[in-house]
Amino acid sequence: MEENKTALIWKMAIGSAVSWELAKLIGSDHPYLAPLSVVLCLQSTIDQSIRYSIHRILGTAIGIILTAYLASHLDMNGWILGLLLLGSTFIAKWLRLDETVLHQVALTVILIFTFERKSKDYSIDRILDTIIGVIITILIHMLLSPPDFTKKAVAATEKLALQLSDILLELSNWVHLEWGGEKGQVMKYKINLFLQELHNTKATIELATKSLKFNPLGKKHAAILTMCKMKMEKMNNWYQYVSTIVGTLKDWEKAGHLLSNDQIEVGNHLKTLSEYFRNLGEGKEGNLPSSMNLLQSTPPPSHQVYREFFYLETRNLMQKLL
């Protein structure tokens, strides 16, 4: 994130300087309008900058068309300004334009109302300088350290996988070492925290995906984000699995019937899953060992319903992970 902030600072400074000089070069008497567009249109991603730029140009054009003539022939007072704002923004709303456009229309109306009678060229300068600022913004955003949140997405995905590994290891220790200690509530709390991080990581990956749109590095990093999404799908499947399993283990613990053989097998399976997700979190290939042969085996009918349910859910999870 610090790298992105540093890049943003440089882009605002360079873009403002270039756009100001370019606006002066074409004869603008209000060159400050160009860097104003640069500062406003520099968004988190190139895609967002382009959309915001379109809204800004559209809002500016509508505001000028509806206000420029009237502003030079009406008295300057708050009531006239309010009526102009009301009329122009309602027209924009009637055209079903975005809320961002409404703000740009209102801003343009205020500035045109204030400066048009002082400088007859203000309206023309405003639209031309806005276009200059927008063009410079998009070019500098694409060519100078284009925003890319791929590294952040990868780090968030790996961190989530390690968090998941720790929870599975704790579940294994519950079965192996702490059975009868009523640890189910603690595990439910940790799983709920994991769910929050799951949503946050999905949002980070989504932002990273958007940051690659119109980005020269987009194709290079798209494959990395595809891998992150595949890992997220596995962790989402795990969340559904473990949410069910914890309830089963709680009921099994209350029943008090846990044979030593079951204790070893169930605990080991959870530990194996923990190691699988730890490998994912460390950027390694996550392979389930052949010793975890739940896909081929079925618990004998003599086993209790809790064991049968645990094995059934674990088999379903493994089918999704493979």
Rank of each mutant, 00 (worst) to 15 (best):
V109W: 07
Y32V: 12
L111G: 08
L321M: 11
M142Y: 14
L84Y: 00
I112A: 03
L95M: 14
L198N: 05
L66S: 05
K219D: 15
G82T: 02
A68M: 12
T45F: 01
Y69D: 11
P301L: 09
L217I: 07
G78K: 01
H221E: 03
T298L: 07
I124W: 09
G63P: 01
L86E: 05
G281A: 04
T114R: 11
L128E: 11
T60I: 00
S243P: 02
M318T: 12
Y122H: 05
I54T: 09
D251A: 14
L83P: 00
G87I: 00
K93F: 13
C228G: 03
I224A: 09
I140W: 00
E265S: 12
L270M: 11
W238D: 09
W10H: 10
I124G: 14
E265G: 04
V186N: 14
L321A: 06
T209D: 09
F90R: 00
M318V: 12
F113S: 05
L74F: 06
L102F: 07
H141D: 13
R117E: 04
T6K: 15
G281P: 05
T298E: 05
L74I: 04
A68H: 06
E99M: 05
Q48Y: 02
K93E: 02
D75C: 06
E178V: 15
A161T: 02
Q163T: 06
E2G: 08
Q104R: 01
T209K: 14
I205V: 05
L86S: 03
L168F: 07
S88D: 01
K320T: 09
S88W: 02
V18D: 02
E182F: 03
L198D: 06
N200D: 15
N192T: 13
Y52G: 08
E233R: 13
L66H: 04
P289W: 06
G218T: 09
T6W: 15
G184R: 03
L249N: 08
I54C: 08
Q263I: 03
L249W: 12
A106Q: 01
W174G: 01
I26E: 05
L168I: 15
P31R: 00
E170N: 10
S165P: 08
D148P: 05
S44L: 11
T89Y: 00
E265R: 15
V38Q: 08
E116W: 07
